[in-house]
Structures are given as structure tokens and as C-alpha cells.
């Protein structure tokens, strides 16, 4: 049907999702979309994205208090550190877009919302994946599941956005999540 409609290259993924050995996202199409109305300006999207990254970072940091093993504590710190880099990128873009200079502290006090990356809460992620938090492989797998969910959320939001600058920003953020996923996969090796 699509080739009939002028699609130049249509590729059927043999075996469908059953054959897919990468990460998956779950939930209906509107999962997490309460975070985005679709009418946000670019700075508003950056605030939401930053808030989601911050929520995840806070989760990782809270886990360092909760786990016992030294290696897994270090792993959670490392995961929190990855989120810091992403946050810095987002705040830099926010400053450039708005022409205002807010320190990170001011930005977090005045702008940041309480939310968790991917649009689910910490409890929902823990209930869904029931990870053994003392097991490094399971912790990385949990982090990958969250990043996959976040990538999915940004992509779905981009698909629903009409403003081109906002859509491109969401695609950029989704691509950063793709890069995070690869980085996390590297930790499993």
C-alpha cells in the first residue's frame, strides 16, 4: 500500500517485535503525554525535558542511599552523572533561546517541575521491572528501560507537534536518549 502511495523504500521487519532483541517501550500512545500539551514553546519543552532528566537523576541519587554494595552504589552515581551532562546541554539551549542567564540553581528553583523521565513515576518503573537493585546488570537494564521509555515519549510528542522548532528540539532530545541507550549498552559489555 505504501509503495503505491509513493513511499520510496518500505522495509518489512522480518519476525516483527518478537524478533527484536533491543529495548521496548510500553503503554498506550498517550503515556506521559500529560507532560506536553502540544502547544508548548521551545523554552517550555526544554523545561519539561530538564525536569524529566532531573527527576531521573534524583531517583539514581536516592538509590545510592538505598543500596548496600559499593559497586552498585558507584554505578548509580555514574548513571546520575550521565544525566548531569544532558541537563547541562538543555539548560544551555534554554539560555540561548530565552536570552536570559539563570544559574542552574535559579533555573531549578523557579522552573523545574516534579516529574520522572519517560512519563512514569519511580514507583511505576520499580513495579514494572522489579529489578534487584543490588545487581549491576539489572540496574543498567532498568536504566535502559527508562531511557527507551523517554525516547519513545519525546518521539511521540514530536510526532504530534506542529511547530517546527519544537519538533526539531524534541527529535534532538530523542536522539540524545538514543545515544544514552548505546552508552548504557556499553556498560553491560
Amino acid at each position: 500500500m505504501l509503495t503505491d502511495r509513493g513511499f520510496q523504500k518500505v522495509i518489512n521487519m522480518a519476525g516483527g517485535i518478537k524478533a527484536w532483541n533491543g529495548n521496548r517501550a510500553i503503554g498506550p500512545e498517550d503515556t506521559g503525554l500529560y507532560l506536553f500539551t502540544g502547544a508548548e514553546t521551545l523554552p517550555q519543552v526544554l523545561i519539561v525535558a530538564y525536569s524529566l532528566e532531573k527527576g531521573l537523576q534524583d531517583f539514581y541519587l536516592s538509590m545510592t542511599e538505598r543500596v548496600i554494595g559499593e559497586a552498585v552504589k558507584n554505578l548509580f552515581e555514574k548513571l546520575a552523572g550521565i544525566e548531569t551532562i544532558h541537563q547541562e546541554r538543555l539548560i544551555t539551549e534554554y539560555r540561548r533561546e530565552t536570552g536570559t542567564y539563570l544559574s542552574q540553581e535559579e533555573f531549578e528553583t523557579t522552573q523545574v517541575l516534579g516529574a520522572m523521565e519517560g512519563g512514569l513515576t519511580t514507583e511505576q518503573y520499580l513495579e514494572l521491572y522489579e529489578p534487584d537493585l543490588e545487581n549491576e546488570t539489572e540496574v543498567v537494564s532498568l536504566a535502559m528501560a527508562i531511557e527507551a521509555q523517554a525516547l519513545d515519549l519525546y518521539q511521540r510528542t514530536a510526532d504530534r507537534t506542529n511547530a517546527e522548532d519544537v519538533r526539531l528540539a524534541l527529535m534532538r532530545i530523542a536522539n540524545e536518549e538514543r545515544a544514552h541507550l548505546k552508552q548504557l549498552a556499553g556498560l553491560l559489555d
Binding site: 516483527g16 517485535i17 527484536w20 533491543g22 529495548n23 521496548r24 517501550a25 510500553i26 503503554g27 498506550p28 500512545e29 527507551a148 521509555q149 525516547l151 519513545d152 518521539q155 511521540r156 526539531l168 527529535m171 530523542a174 536522539n175 538514543r178
Partner: peptide, 23 residues
């Protein structure tokens, strides 16, 4: 880059909900 291809799940919403490729 994610903007360089279309990825389409042509299954039914219930199947999508249980698990789909991110994006």
C-alpha cells in the same frame, strides 16, 4: 538519526501497549 527514517507499528493498539519499539 531518528529523523532519517519512519518506524511504524502496524499492529493493533492493545499489542502496541504491551510493548513496542521505542519511537
Amino acid at each position: 538519526d531518528g529523523a532519517e527514517y519512519n518506524l511504524v507499528d502496524v499492529r493493533q493498539p492493545g499489542e502496541y501497549q504491551k510493548g513496542h519499539l521505542p519511537g
